[in-house]
Nucleic acid binder design. Structure first.
Lengths: 213, 213
DNA sequence: CTCACCATTCGACCAAAGTCGAAGGTCTGA
DNA sequence: TCAGACCTTCGACTTTGGTCGAATGGTGAG
């Protein structure tokens, strides 16, 4: 399987999807390219074909609460390299994306050549994540310790679901969900569900906006 | 008291405070001008002197969770006209500010003449709030029904406080806080504390950011 | 003044959230 | 194969959250 590459492109904007697909098809002839327009579709595709060589992911898709969705995918499929493709964002968001396991970041204004170059580098095993990362975001550090199932529980908590609803959606007992919540609260360093939701939402919605007087 | 006007300027940036003070002092000679740099200071000043003719308020101050703080002040002092002074914001935020009882909106890049003109209009009883407002934000409409004490409770809920802590901070029993929470949930149309906090925080942090490809 | 209305307060009761301990499953390295 | 670590699951128990009914006190309409 020398050149039987496969990619998954996730973006809610069809135009962007096609542009990325054309860029990849040109740079890697014969590559299999799958598409997804919502967070749910991404999960389905990855479930069907977990062996993709790279996932090109937009952070502003319906269903994924920003970085929460990234972390969720990352937990479910640790082996899949994830390349963030998004509009210009604050450096803090980009840094956090790396902390959550993203392999690279591509600005939507990048040229097709640039995209191909970055994807090729990721496939070669290079990670564009800055090895330094500085002191890093403390909450992100703590959140990175969560297991896949715990991420799913947290993602539903952030949407306002109660334990009973979460249990039903995940197909487990309510007692199980409660146990997960307990661990989540301890790992995040908070003392109530409400505080956990507040902190998690700060991840999804980085800054109100920069001040420009 | 023909021209014994008094103003309260609330902004965490000293430079902006001085600019506003100079604009008002020039346009309304003899006016008494008080200052505040945090949300807590605003509350103290309004408690000490509730008869101010206008409050010039910055939304990005420490302590006030965006529009939550505005609504809180509005509930505590319904008679004080509030003029929002802030950096450029999305139209949705400005619209919501009006729904929460703001009398006018001044961009920080406005000239001193413009500021004086708007303040004069507000003092004359004119409200710059668009009478139409369209379908309006449904949550904001529901939230506007909250009483002052209920706003205080909600503001503390949004910070992640538990009922016991809220009771202590407000100097009432825990049972009282629970009763308030019940009414708040019903008025907001949600079924749990977590959902209420999620919706309330959507007010404070409008959008992630505009897309600029 | 009297009545009605509403904000605020609380106690008693029920539902949801959170804690503790434990069992079974999987994977890794000795 | 066995030991240890970890994820997932759950039941029993405690704490917190939320509902209902009721008493108090203020305020405005008639």
């Amino acid at each position: 399987m020398a050149d039987a590459l496969s990619f998954l492109i996730a973006d809610d904007h069809p135009m962007v999807r096609d542009a990325l697909a054309s860029a990849l098809g040109q740079a890697f002839s014969g590559a299999a390219i799958a598409m997804a327009g919502t967070f749910a579709e991404v999960q389905v595709e990855l479930e069907r074909e977990p062996e993709v060589d790279a996932l090109l992911l937009d952070l502003d898709m319906p269903g994924m609460d920003g970085l929460t969705g990234l972390a969720l995918l990352r937990s479910d499929h640790p082996a899949v390299p994830i390349i963030i493709v998004s509009a210009a964002r604050e450096p803090a968001t980009i840094r956090r994306a790396y902390e959550f396991g993203a392999s690279a970041y591509i600005d939507k204004s990048a040229s097709l050549d640039e995209i191909a170059r970055i994807v090729r580098a990721v496939l070669a095993g290079e990670i564009f994540a800055p090895p330094e990362a500085g002191p890093a975001d403390s909450f992100a550090q703590r959140a990175a310790q969560l297991t896949p199932q715990q991420w799913r529980v947290l993602a539903l908590m952030v949407q306002g679901d109660q334990n009973k609803q979460i249990a039903h959606k995940l197909g487990v007992g309510e007692a199980t969900v409660k146990a997960h919540v307990t661990v989540i609260l301890r790992k995040l360093g908070v003392r109530s569900r409400t505080q956990a939701v507040i902190e998690a939402r700060n991840l999804a919605l980085p800054q109100p906006e920069p001040v420009r007087p």
